[in-house]
Amino acid sequence: MKHDFMDVYRDRKSFIHCLDPRIKIIAAICCLVFFILAPGRNLAAFAWYAVFVGVLMALSGVPVSFYIKRFASLVPFVALIGISVPFMHAGIGGVRVFLILMCRAMLSIMLLSVLTASTRFSDLLKAGESLGFPKLLITVLSFMYRYIFLIQEETMLMKIAWHSRFFGKNTFKAWKSLAGLIAAMFLRSFEKAERVYLAMCSRGFSGQAKTLTRFSISFQDILFLWATILFLAGVTLNGSYKN
């Protein structure tokens, strides 16, 4: 993986892409809260949530195949974590509990997938800063994201080399070699950081991080946020009181 595979989709211009990133983050958090709060017996609410996420996916301009792939690859992963649930209860009850758990987890994951596929990471960072996230963290995240794929690529090469020598062997030598690999990566990263710092200083950096952004919230953004909250609140409360 040489670079973030989602970058391809982030430069499109769908409805979701054009929303203010801060609104998207706030809306996403509201959605997540609803997904967790809804009582498990309120199946209608979950159905509506799925429809809602589906609509967002459609509006995001990102191909369905991308979402399907994401879903398919993450389901077994999450399922493994909740694997013992069906065994814990007799019969249908246990399976149902397991499925509701999976629902909550997968709805959250797919919602976040829409968010991250339709928003540039640097915009997410700037939105976070605007919403009160510590500036230091934002700057560190910015650097991290820039170098993550580069370092990952270098690591992969080393990992392949290590695997071809030590695959499956649980020996002292294997562990020492792995540690040596990690130490080498560490030192390279450290020295890379020192050189990046030199480049920054050469261009006038003097210790205090500065950023450039301007977001503006439009009527469309506010409308979207309120529509989302009202809709989700509606389907959640409706189902909960009916029973």
Binding site: L136, F143, M144, I148, Q152, S189, E194
Partner: peptide
């Protein structure tokens, strides 16, 4: 001063590790 790029790149390192 050099801590900021250092933390960022170290974070990338930890992620990879």
């Amino acid at each position: 001063e050099k801590t900021i790029p250092l933390m960022g790149i170290m974070a990338a390192f930890v992620f990879a590790a």
